[in-house]
């Protein structure tokens, strides 16, 4: 029984990471109707910024943290200007390719600038974790789970109860109508990229002490987050969270009780099952996509 709880905790922990990254996916998808294949690099870049500020420059953790998030805001804006904005009137395919190009560019530029060595980033909290019975709760995973809850609450409040949030929502639902209503659509999309980069960056910073900082850290997570997004229902924030958590739990239990080497396979099998039997996801209305 303890084993079940241990696996559950771990699954929710890793699932929260998927969920955070998925949140960034959903926001960009809703605003622009494209999937950002460079989403994983948001996490990677932020973790490297943390390494630069807190490890190399030895600045205090909190200052480094804020600077890194600020850096991610700028990065998100630049990403929008360079990768999405010039292609906004084209179909989704060129944008996908352009984000793939960005992913290659960013990860290898990081390699060129920072070298191939994985880096160690200290966790935010000093104590490593504690036991409840024989179940070990890792402090960093607890922090990730907690922050995910806070962020989801914040996001809900932001989109439902603030003017800016409502404008963003209007933009993602109908760009033409939004611009008729006098909402500056380009600015709204810019803000979406900025926010998405910051969320992805936050996920990267949180997960770095566990998975280490390397140029490849974002890739696998982003792919799982993408799967989570679809399981939850594309375009639905709550769905992304549930999808991420479900994926984390399913693959952890699948690994424990079926097969460890096929762990990544479970995520995709579940995904295919969802696509075949419930393409609209757990929650979301199916997003109509034109061929």
């Amino acid at each position: 029984m303890d084993m079940v709880f241990q696996l559950l905790f771990q699954g929710i922990g890793i699932g929260s990471v998927y969920a955070l990254v998925a949140l960034g996916f959903v926001l960009i998808f809703r605003a622009t109707n494209v999937v950002n294949f460079a989403q994983g690099e948001f996490s990677m870049v932020a973790a490297f910024l943390m390494v630069i500020f807190s490890v190399d420059l030895e600045w205090p953790y909190w200052i480094s943290f804020l600077l890194s998030l600020g850096g991610m805001a700028i990065y998100g804006a630049l990403f929008n200007l360079g990768v999405y904005f010039p292609l906004r009137h084209r179909t989704y395919l060129p944008v996908i390719i352009s984000t793939i190009g960005a992913s290659i560019l960013v990860s290898n530029s990081t390699l060129a600038l920072y070298g191939p060595q994985p880096q160690v980033l200290q966790p935010l909290l000093d104590f490593p974790g504690f036991n409840i019975g024989t179940v070990y709760l890792d402090a960093q995973y607890l922090l990730i789970i907690g922050l995910t809850v806070v962020l989801v609450a914040f996001q809900y409040w932001f989109f439902e109860h603030t003017l800016l949030g409502k404008k963003l929502q209007a933009t993602s639902q109908d760009k033409e109508m939004a611009s008729l209503l006098g909402i500056p659509v380009a600015t709204m999309i810019m803000l979406t990229f900025v926010y998405s980069a910051m969320i992805g960056g936050l996920a990267g910073i949180l997960v770095a002490p566990i998975l280490f900082v390397s140029i490849h850290m974002g890739g696998t997570i982003a792919l799982k987050a993408f799967a989570a997004t679809i399981i939850g229902g594309f375009g639905d924030v709550a769905g992304a969270i549930i999808g991420g958590l479900a994926l984390g739990v399913i693959e952890t239990f699948g690994a424990a009780y079926v097969s460890v080497p096929y762990k990544d396979g479970f995520a995709f099998l579940v995904l295919v099952a969802f696509l075949v039997f419930r393409p609209q996801g757990i929650f979301g209305e199916r997003v109509a996509e034109k061929a």
Binding site: H216, T252, A256, V260, P261, Y262, D264
Partner: peptide
């Protein structure tokens, strides 16, 4: 056995 670039080894350790 585990696949390279695994993010979590809890199932392995518990086994």
């Amino acid at each position: 056995g585990y696949a390279n670039q695994s993010q979590d080894f809890t199932p392995v350790v518990l086994a």
